[in-house]
Design a protein around this nucleic acid. Sequence first.
DNA 1: CCGCAACAGTATCGACTCGAAACCATTTTT
DNA 2: AAAAATGGTTTCGAGTCGATACTGTTGCGG
Lengths: 202, 202
Amino acid sequence: MDKSPQVLFELVERLANLMRAEFRRVASDEQLQPVHIQALAYLARANRYSNTPQAMAEYLGLTKGTMSQSLLLLDRRGLVERYQDDLDRRVVRLRLSSAGEQFLSEAQPQLAWQHATRNISPNRIRNAVSALRETLTTFQDDNESRGFGACHGCRHFERLSARAYRCGLMGDRLSGPEARRICWLHVPKGTVLEEDEDEDEE
Amino acid sequence: MDKSPQVLFELVERLANLMRAEFRRVASDEQLQPVHIQALAYLARANRYSNTPQAMAEYLGLTKGTMSQSLLLLDRRGLVERYQDDLDRRVVRLRLSSAGEQFLSEAQPQLAWQHATRNISPNRIRNAVSALRETLTTFQDDNESRGFGACHGCRHFERLSARAYRCGLMGDRLSGPEARRICWLHVPKGTVLEEDEDEDEE
DNA sequence: CCGCAACAGTATCGACTCGAAACCATTTTT
DNA sequence: AAAAATGGTTTCGAGTCGATACTGTTGCGG
């Protein structure tokens, strides 16, 4: 019997704890909590469909109520801006304010990490990435939680030409950079879509 | 320029978030917080020098005040027991109560993880482990945070005979199982990397 | 076109986290 | 013996977080 998976888990957990502590350190300069840093970082990487409180809450594993609170705070501090969606006026859209962007670029929360991996060969890192990526996919599958991936590798992703893409689900054209951001509608290729089917029971 | 370290970081963070959500789910059955699960799990793995509030606080990246609170709660719930140290009466020692052990073994918080890694070859896992372990060591070095490793690979670890060990720092004899637990006095030797055969996959 | 369910988000409450600082009881140092 | 250091506890205030109730918007079925 092999204990490696267990060990891997402990490593991931421990590293995450340390990064969390690092986040806390960085965040406390601005009187923020770790989760706020994560929220800002998410916003910096979310695509146009995913910059809502709802998507954010799902990404961070919180309820919408909690998310609302945190966003209130970030808004008060002027780190994010909230504005209404044109089409659906229930929806709130979020964006980093310039202060928010500046804060992120100054704080560089992942710098410590970058530094910690400096001695590891790119090859080994790529191997680790591939293993963890697979773990993540399986995990999300098991828990039927949302995919949250970039467009490349999404079932709805369509390539119109060399440099023009399109989301088959929403029907929008996507620029290259946009297609590299995080999307909460992401469905990995190879996943079977659940169509609405009529049920004739009872 | 290579973005792999960045990607690796995102994966670790995301996996940790998901596990955290899983912890929350498990914990909420008993009206606990994720951090309580981590505390119990730590206690189950800590050696005789490391079962104190202080060590725990450092491991989890909290202050002693906060730790004290959480332990109060875990004590009230009957999941841990606190008792005084014989030699130094300031020191509080902790141990899992039988209820605590039972809870851990029933909840099996890392089961979801185990399951998520089922499709990944042991070899790839070992590679990932080795890369992350190195990252962890470097990280701890950079931040001069405590090592928190098992005795094997510790500078103070001495092998008396085939099956008898000794901690050179504290001067105690250690059993084999004991030497496999987590110690907060851990100081890594020069460079102890169980290297694995290099190979590229993909 | 109306009515009602579904939905996105907000507000409120209570238990808990968390750091900071003050505090207490024991060593340890001087 | 006095002072400093150490391991823990207590207290305080701001914030997290889930649960629940609520507001306003959309969209669906009659």
